[in-house]
Computed example of a mutant assay.
Amino acid sequence: MSVRAGGALRVEGVSVDLAGRRIIEEVALSAHGNVVGLVGPNGSGKSTLLRTIYRMLRPAEGTVLVEDRDVWSMSAKEAARITAAVVQDSPVDLELTVVDCVTTGRLPHGSLLGSGRAEDGRVVELAMRRAGVEDFADRDMSTLSGGERQRVQLARALAQEPRLLVLDEPTNHLDIRHQLQLLALVRSLDVTTLVTLHDLNLAASYCDEIVVLEHGRVVASGLPGEVFTPQLLQRVFGVRADTLVNPLTGRLQLVYADS
Rank of each mutant, 00 (worst) to 15 (best):
L9E: 13
T52F: 08
V211A: 03
N34C: 15
A137P: 00
V3I: 15
V99T: 14
G6S: 15
T192W: 09
A85G: 11
Q88H: 07
D70H: 09
A257K: 10
E26I: 04
L232Y: 06
Q234H: 14
S115Q: 15
V123D: 12
V219S: 02
G225W: 04
T48H: 06
P91I: 12
S142L: 06
L213E: 01
N201T: 02
D140P: 00
S90T: 13
N42L: 09
V152Y: 04
A203Y: 02
V218K: 07
D68L: 12
V87R: 06
R139M: 07
L252G: 03
V218L: 01
R130V: 01
V218H: 01
E226N: 09
Q253C: 07
P170V: 06
G13W: 01
V36K: 04
R240P: 00
V11Y: 08
A257Q: 11
P108R: 07
S115R: 11
T229W: 03
L248W: 08
A5T: 13
A85N: 10
N201S: 05
R69T: 15
Q181D: 15
G147E: 04
L254S: 07
L94P: 00
Y206Q: 01
I23W: 06
E12V: 14
A184N: 12
E148D: 09
D175L: 10
E209T: 06
V92P: 05
L144G: 03
G222R: 01
A60H: 10
A79K: 02
E134F: 05
R139P: 00
L154P: 00
E25T: 14
T229F: 08
L65I: 10
R51G: 07
L154W: 04
L165E: 04
A8W: 01
F136C: 00
A203H: 01
V133C: 14
S221G: 00
A79E: 12
L9C: 11
K46F: 06
L38D: 07
D68V: 08
E169I: 09
L189D: 06
L165Q: 05
D100H: 14
P224H: 09
R22G: 10
R129C: 05
